[in-house]
Design a protein around this nucleic acid. Structure first.
Lengths: 203, 203
DNA sequence: TGTACATTTGACCATCTGGTTAAATTATTT
DNA sequence: AAATAATTTAACCAGATGGTCAAATGTACA
């Protein structure tokens, strides 16, 4: 139950994820998903009752394929700076492989915030670990204190926005796709550096 | 030509901007815009020929009401750190007044990147000024060198993403709308601080 | 006042879109 | 091989949606 067993079902699901993440719920057409999967439109409704149900499955799948990894890193007992580096690197890798994910998730959550509760709480984020690390590092004089909220949002921002703003960035800086890839690769070094420099205590 | 003269036309246009920025092109309904404007649906087509044309006007209007301000600051002869502070403050103020703008622009540009050329090049961004300031400050040992691209993207990211991710942030940190407003207000101080700390040369 | 012109509306149309159904095809079981 | 169940399809439907049009209303002006 809930899982994907048949071959056809998986083909359809992959097609749906592709179309939904690219075009969003409103922009996606059931016919387009059927075409992408190379099957009849009625077969969509045979396997997934309707557009909403299919979309829900896709949305959950996207969240479940990314959030747990990131939360795992956040809740680990890694030292603070390592955590920042690993989080960045992992998140950028995920989004490099699926550049539409960030825009998709944020856009759909604005369109329909109720989904947040289910999908986020399933993966249960827990910020105490990180919060304690910050407090400890601040007390011991290693870093300037910063609220967890802002630290997490800063990391999310520096990592995710470039993917959401890809066309803007490419236009603004006259980049071609290869330039953009290189730009993102540079950020795997630059983002943790930026974050750490912004909080590290200067002598 | 291109401007809005009649009273009705402006009412319709405002309604369109409201609906389009909230729901996006695909999610917006001409009927909903008509209702929002309190007029007949046929009147939409009397003033603005069709959905595409109306959307185009709205999109241009949104870009034109924000980009030039920000580009003006970027191209001014303000000292680098003041520029960072002013840019952040102005951009956050704009988005506080129109929280949907960021998500709207980025989402629609991914959906239809060709529009970027027209709308961006109309406002003609010019990064030489900022680029020279960075080089100068780096040479004089005030800051660590950073490519303009990354500096600009870092600022855009730290400022814009929180608005795009509002529901995620509110959910993740159990914020209500007032909490979120306060959080954003905090960022007017924190973002320039983050940026400056990340590049300033330590002794 | 009457006439030309702009504005506004209700009714209507063609097409798109999500969804259904009954029949056909294929696989499974006995 | 016959019967039963699962999978797939073509054809179809109802409602939504962008868009049109002729008539009605309002406005300016001779």
């Amino acid at each position: 139950m809930g899982s994907i067993d048949s071959k056809t079902e998986e083909i359809i699901f992959r097609a749906a994820r592709k179309v939904f993440t690219r075009k969003g719920f409103d922009g996606a057409r059931m016919q387009e998903i059927a075409d992408e999967a190379g099957i009849n439109k009625a077969l969509l409704h045979y396997y997934f009752r309707n557009k909403d149900k299919l979309f829900d499955r896709v949305f959950r799948d996207v969240v479940k394929s990314t959030l747990p990894q990131l939360i795992g890193i956040m809740n680990s007992d890694m030292p603070l700076f390592d955590k920042i580096r690993t989080f960045t690197s992992t998140y950028i890798d995920i989004l490099s492989g699926n550049p539409e994910f960030a825009g998709f998730v944020f856009h759909e959550l604005s369109r329909n915030p109720y989904r947040l509760l289910e999908s986020l709480k399933e993966s249960g984020p827990n910020l105490r670990v990180l919060e304690n690390q910050i407090k400890e590092a601040a007390l011991s004089g290693k870093i300037e204190y910063i609220p967890v909220t802002h630290l997490v949002v800063n990391m999310m921002s520096l990592i995710a926005l470039p993917f959401i703003a890809q066309p803007v960035i490419m236009g603004m800086f006259s980049m071609n796709p290869e330039d953009f890839d290189a730009f993102i690769r540079e950020r795997k070094e630059l983002v943790p550096q930026t974050i750490i420099h912004s909080i590290i205590k200067r002598p």
